[in-house]
Amino acid sequence: MKFLYSFLIFILFQITFAQEQAVFYFDNNKFELNKTEAAKLQKWISENTTSKILSITGSTDEVGTSGYNDTLSQKRVSHIFNQIKGKVNIRPDFKSISLGEKGATSKNKAENRKAIIHYLLEKDLDKENEVLGIKEQDKEVVIPDDAPLAEKVKLAKVGTKITLKNINYFQNTFATTPESQGALYDLLFVMQSNPDLKIEVQGHICCVDVDRRNLSLDRARQVKRFLVYNGIQEHRVKTKGFGVSQPLHPIPEATPEQAAENRRVEIEILSKK
């Protein structure tokens, strides 16, 4: 978490000699580039195949509600990301930063409807950690997505979030489906094998604007109930529901796969040895 905070502060408030920026502007209420800006992006891609992207920041003007602008901003970031994915190098801990109307720094509304690619040129890649202010002990550990849960927890630092795969619920309920048992018992085994491990189970839902029933929290609590029922001390497991406030993909989701990724359960490592 310390690294993430430092990284965001750097991206949002500092400019160094080694970090580059490319700015692309959007028409009013649009999240896809017009022909002129799209051609500009393709030109940038062709000229930066050996560069490395650090983050993409999206923003809007101040017209509209904050919620609408936050979603529009994230859609602009996603649009840019989808255009560059597989064509330009991207840091493994790439950050997608949606500022919404909070990124409106100009009196000219058109200048606030933008996405900014923050990147390093090939000649500056050897200064990457220095530019980002990352010390050796602060480096984020890259955890393989296909690693077993026990291995992920072993590699994780305090503050790391890990998605619990294959935990599913019956529609509009907090009751887990039978196929979730394997993932639940994996988590139980990890908790039993690491008696000093404390976690926060975090629930996320998809497909709606607001979690009016607090379903995300109820789903997190259901995971805790399973652990406590099977002997894990209650104080080792906290719960939190984020509703739809931290989607991996813009809402409404474009595909069922995006909805499934937004609808997830994560654990955050609170303490471990």
Rank of each mutant, 00 (worst) to 15 (best):
I9D: 13
F10Y: 14
I11W: 03
L12C: 09
L12Q: 11
A18G: 05
A18E: 06
Q19S: 15
E20I: 03
E20W: 01
Q21I: 10
A22V: 06
A22G: 10
V23I: 09
F26D: 04
N29W: 03
N29G: 11
K30Y: 08
K30C: 07
F31P: 00
F31W: 11
F31Y: 15
F31K: 02
L33D: 03
N34H: 08
K35L: 07
K35S: 12
E37T: 10
A39F: 03
K40W: 06
K40H: 14
K43I: 07
I45D: 10
S46V: 11
N48L: 08
N48C: 05
T49L: 06
S51C: 15
K52W: 01
L54W: 07
I56C: 01
I56R: 02
I56Y: 01
S59C: 09
S59K: 01
E62A: 09
V63K: 13
V63T: 13
G64Q: 04
G64I: 04
T65R: 05
S66T: 11
G67T: 13
G67Q: 10
G67E: 08
Y68D: 07
L72C: 12
L72A: 12
S73Y: 00
R76Q: 09
V77F: 02
K85C: 06
K85Q: 09
K85R: 12
G86L: 09
V88R: 01
I90C: 09
R91P: 00
R91H: 05
P92R: 12
P92A: 11
F94I: 03
F94L: 13
S96I: 05
G100K: 02
G103P: 02
S106V: 01
K107A: 14
K107N: 15
E111T: 04
R113Y: 00
R113M: 06
A115I: 02
A115K: 05
A115W: 01
I116H: 05
L120H: 05
L120A: 00
L121N: 15
E122Y: 13
K123N: 15
D124M: 01
D124V: 08
D126T: 15
D126I: 05
